[in-house]
Design a protein around this nucleic acid. Structure first.
Lengths: 117, 117
DNA sequence: CTATAATGCAACTAATTGATTGCACTTGAA
DNA sequence: TTCAAGTGCAATCAATTAGTTGCATTATAG
C-alpha cells in the first residue's frame, strides 16, 4: 500500500482525517495539533498521528515555528488523485460508447431470421 | 467509516482493488471473480471480497448470469469523488490567493520603519 | 532561571483488514 | 442424471490501524 495513489486515497478514507484536512483547507495559515485537538473528540496524540499521515500522503506540510508545529494543507496530490479518477471515468465512458455502437452495428447487420435464442 | 465518501476512497486505497477496478474498466462486458483470479496472485475468495467491497462502494455492479456472476464497473461515484477533490482544491487556491493579497496589502500600508524584527 | 506550554516518544489495546482454507450449494453441459 | 464449473459461507490468521495513556524533551514567557 506504499504507492503514491494508495496513500492519498487511504488518507482521505478516514472521516476524522478528512475533517482535519478540511480544517487545514479553511486556514491557509495552518493549525497546530493542539489547536485541532481542542475541537476534536479524540486525544492530541491521535490528531498528531492523523496529521503525520496526511503529511506523509502529501496532503499537509508541517512547519516548525518555535515551540509549535503548524500544519498547512497542500493540494498538489489532490490534483493528481482527481486526475486519476477523471481519466478512468472518461476512459470508461469511451468504452461504453464503443460497446453500444458495437451492439447497434451488430443488430443492423443481422438478418431478422438469424436472431439467437 | 460508513459514509459514502469514505467507502469510495477506502475502496480505491488498495492496489489490488484498484487493479481489479481498472480491469473492470477495460472490459465493459464485465468479468467474473474466477476469471480475474486467473491472472491475480491471490485466491479467488480474496478477489470476491475485493469485488464485493468495490460493489459496496458503488464502483462495481454484480450481475448474475446463470451460474456465473459478472462484475461491471460503474463510474457514478467516481464523478462524486473527483468532484469532492476538485472542490476542495479550488477552495484552497482561492484562500491562498486571498492570503497572498492580504500579505501584499499589509506590506504596502506599512511604513518602512515599522518593519518588525 | 524557572514554570509552563507544546511537542515527541513509546508501550499497549481493540478493532479492522487482506488473505487463506475447507466445504457446501447451485447450475449447466455431456 | 451425473459431475464439474462457478459461486457462497464461515472460521481462522497475521498485519495494520485508530486510539489511548504516561512520561520525556524542548522552548518561551515572566
Amino acid at each position: 500500500m506504499s504507492d503514491d495513489v494508495s496513500v492519498v486515497f487511504a488518507a482521505l478514507s478516514d472521516p476524522t482525517r478528512r475533517s482535519l484536512f478540511e480544517q487545514l483547507l479553511e486556514q491557509p495559515q495552518g493549525r497546530t495539533a493542539t489547536e485541532l485537538a481542542d475541537n476534536a473528540s479524540v486525544s492530541r496524540q491521535a490528531i498528531v498521528k492523523h496529521l503525520q499521515l496526511l503529511a506523509n500522503a502529501g496532503l499537509a506540510v508541517a512547519v516548525r515555528d518555535g515551540r509549535e508545529v503548524r500544519y498547512r494543507a497542500s493540494t498538489d496530490v489532490v490534483q493528481h488523485a482527481s486526475a486519476w479518477l477523471s481519466v478512468r471515468a472518461s476512459a470508461w465512458d469511451r468504452r461504453l460508447a464503443a460497446l453500444e455502437k458495437g451492439v447497434r452495428d451488430a443488430q443492423n447487420s443481422r438478418t431478422p431470421t438469424s436472431r439467437r435464442r
